[in-house]
Computed example of a mutant assay.
Amino acid sequence: MSKEKMEGVVYSSSGIPITTLYVNNLYERADVSFMTEALRTIFQEYGEIVDVVMKKSLYRKGQAFVVFKDPTSITKAMSMQGFPLYDKPMRLAPAKTVSDATVKSEGDEEQLEQHIRKRKSDKERKQAKLAQEAQKNAPHAPGAAEPSKARPAKSAAAVIPDEFLPPNKILFLQNIPSDIDGDELTTIFERFPGFKEVRSIPSRAIAFAEYDTEQNAITAKEATAGMAIGAEQKQMKVTYQRK
């Protein structure tokens, strides 16, 4: 039997109360710590704040997430829609997903880890889908043959960059130094849950690490991508195997 929804509360698509407010159109040149404190001061009157998250990456500047303890605070905080902060009107909306901070405060470490894995998996699937759509919609170069006259195109998976491939139970390892063999790779990857085996191809400086589930493969990939290995400390490239 499903729980009755509370009045004045915003719910996610899965029916979970949203406690995170998405804030956009912030002054991009402001110091992150200074802006974080400003947002905390503005919204604290609408309820207890668990966390304020701002991203430093270029494409996510001007955005923040304010995490409340009580889901009813979201509706109250929306009254600040358009409030000018450093001469820029804030754009507010309930977040679409449940925040890590909320899961951490209401659950245990295992639930938090599962939540983070799912979030990363959903993000990588979305990136893969966007990459596929971008490839399909890419304009033809001047002088190129019309699609109907051109040779059959390769499958979408064949042209998507490795970094945007969707999650897979098998990881593709590249740039493996000659002094690193299958046993040493096994030592690296068997530390993560669900490990099955490593298949090494030394002649091509590549290998494959297989896990029992996509979620476990995601965990291993996040922890090992770019790891420096071998005497020369080469950075190992870790992506998903093409399906």
Rank of each mutant, 00 (worst) to 15 (best):
D179K: 03
I160D: 03
K149W: 08
P193W: 05
I201L: 05
V198N: 04
S148I: 13
F164S: 08
A144S: 12
K149F: 10
A205Q: 15
F192D: 02
S203D: 12
E184S: 14
T186G: 10
T186V: 04
P147T: 01
I160W: 03
D179E: 09
V198I: 12
I170E: 11
F172E: 13
P202S: 02
P202N: 09
A157H: 07
E163V: 11
T186Y: 05
A209Y: 00
A158H: 08
S155L: 13
S148Y: 13
A153T: 14
A144K: 14
P167Y: 00
A145R: 11
P193Q: 05
A156P: 15
P193E: 15
I201D: 06
A144G: 07
F189D: 06
N175E: 02
K154I: 05
R204Q: 14
T186C: 09
A144I: 04
G194D: 08
A145F: 11
A145D: 11
P202K: 10
A205L: 03
K169Q: 13
F164G: 01
L185T: 01
L165G: 02
I188E: 11
N168R: 06
S200I: 13
P152D: 04
I201C: 05
N168L: 13
I206K: 08
N168D: 03
A158R: 15
Q174M: 10
G182K: 00
L171T: 11
F189E: 01
P177G: 07
I180M: 09
V159S: 11
I180G: 02
G182V: 00
K196D: 15
A207N: 02
S200H: 13
R191Y: 07
R151T: 13
E197Y: 04
F189L: 01
P202Y: 04
G194A: 05
P202F: 01
E190S: 15
S203H: 06
P193C: 03
I160Q: 07
A153K: 14
P152H: 07
I170G: 06
A156S: 15
S155V: 02
T186H: 08
R191S: 06
S148T: 11
P152A: 08
F164R: 07
P167A: 08
A205E: 14
E163L: 14
A156W: 11
R204N: 14
E184V: 10
F189Q: 03
N168K: 09
N175C: 10
K169L: 10
V198A: 02
E184T: 12
A158N: 09
R199K: 14
F164L: 05
E190D: 10
I188V: 14
P166Y: 09
A209G: 02
T186Q: 09
P202C: 04
P193F: 01
L165C: 03
S178K: 10
T187K: 15
Q174W: 04
K169E: 14
I180D: 00
K154D: 02
A157N: 12
K149A: 13
K149N: 15
E146G: 13
F172L: 06
I176S: 03
T186E: 08
S178P: 11
D181I: 07
A150P: 05
P147M: 03
D162P: 08
D181K: 10
